[in-house]
């Protein structure tokens, strides 16, 4: 496969997942702000922006609506939902021959409808917009699952999606680590990850901060847990490696990084998890950044446009 196309698939995976997760996080946060008048909206909004890596406007008191404008609709903010959808679509447009028509049309139609959906959401409330993005992301993932061969194209797409998933769950947890352990917000966190029902059935209704963090970081069965996503990314990478004979260590840096992060979670005593949680989350985030760079170095050796110089001769 062309290195350029592999890169596009990886980023399609990342951007779609980012749009989806951002919508989920925002959905829950915005509604919490609306439902609970006791929250300092400006502070909460700024915390969320910081965690999402989006620069907050300095001279403005933020509320649920302006938060939606920035994280949801902004075409200027690189991390906004609208921008993520556009970026995913741009990448798909440049890699049409490795993306199935169904996937492309899904992304393209999603993108085409964004202005109309924004108009509607401004009238009917932001939830309509977030649901739309989540639904379309689910549809896209479904189409990807049913139309892509399980070859390297699939692996690069899945790798991107898994890497982004880890990143977003980590960001979600970071936005909440300072909450009280008994805060009803923890249920909201689970809802963000689409994990509420599964969690409640697993732990029989007991919402407890430590358990929630454990579930989202370490659960081996739930597909949106960090552990599961890391494992998935690791599998993709090891399958991508065409010459896996390696006697000592891991040949590929990306695989090494992911494997280490995964095994740390895998063999961690659950009760130790909360010890120094913020540092653990930061480390995970760094690991993801480094993994991205390592993957890019190993697989995406596209050359940039070559500028030629024609020297004078005699």
């Amino acid at each position: 496969m062309l290195a350029r196309n592999a890169e596009a698939l990886y980023w399609i995976g990342r951007y779609v997942e980012r749009a989806d997760d951002t919508a989920r996080i925002l959905d829950v946060s915005v509604h919490q702000l609306l439902e609970d008048a006791t929250i300092d909206a400006d502070r909460a909004a700024r915390t969320l922006l910081a965690v999402l890596g989006i620069a907050a406007p300095a001279d403005e008191v933020l509320d649920a609506w302006s938060l939606t404008e920035i994280v949801g609709y902004s075409t200027e903010q690189p991390g906004s939902i609208v921008r993520s959808v556009s970026s995913a679509r741009e990448n798909a447009r440049g890699a049409r021959e490795v993306v199935s028509s169904e996937m492309w049309e899904c992304l393209n139609a999603t993108w085409n409808a964004l202005p109309e959906r924004q108009r509607y959401a401004r009238w009917a409330g932001p939830h309509a917009f977030f649901t739309y993005v989540e639904d379309r992301a689910a549809m896209f993932n479904g189409l990807a699952a049913s139309t892509m061969s399980r070859d390297d194209t699939w692996r690069f797409y899945l790798l991107g999606r898994s890497v982004e998933r880890v990143d977003m769950i980590v960001r979600l947890l970071m936005s909440r680590v300072s909450d009280r352990a008994s805060s009803p917000g923890w249920l909201a966190v689970l809802r963000c990850a689409g994990a509420a029902d599964t969690y409640l059935r697993t732990y029989r209704g007991a919402v407890d901060a430590a358990r929630v963090v454990q579930f989202l970081l370490m659960d081996r069965l739930f597909p949106r847990s960090v552990f599961h996503a890391l494992r998935q990314a690791e599998i993709c990478l090891s399958e991508l490696d065409s010459r896996p004979t390696q006697r000592i260590g891991a040949k590929a840096e990306a695989l090494r990084l992911l494997g280490r992060a995964r095994s740390e979670l895998e063999f961690l005593r659950p009760e130790d998890l909360l010890v120094d949680l913020p540092a653990r989350l930061t480390a995970l985030q760094e690991c993801i950044t480094e993994t991205g760079e390592a993957v890019s170095q190993q697989y995406f050796h596209t050359s940039p446009w070559v500028a030629w110089t024609a020297p004078e001769v005699v």
Binding site: V306, W308, T309, P311, V313, V314
Partner: peptide, 18 residues
């Protein structure tokens, strides 16, 4: 009929000696 013509990648400046 140029005796030597060519292109090279990048924008390095070059000096010529004939």
């Amino acid at each position: 009929v140029p005796p030597l013509k060519g292109i090279f990648s990048g924008q390095a400046s070059s000096t010529l000696n004939v």
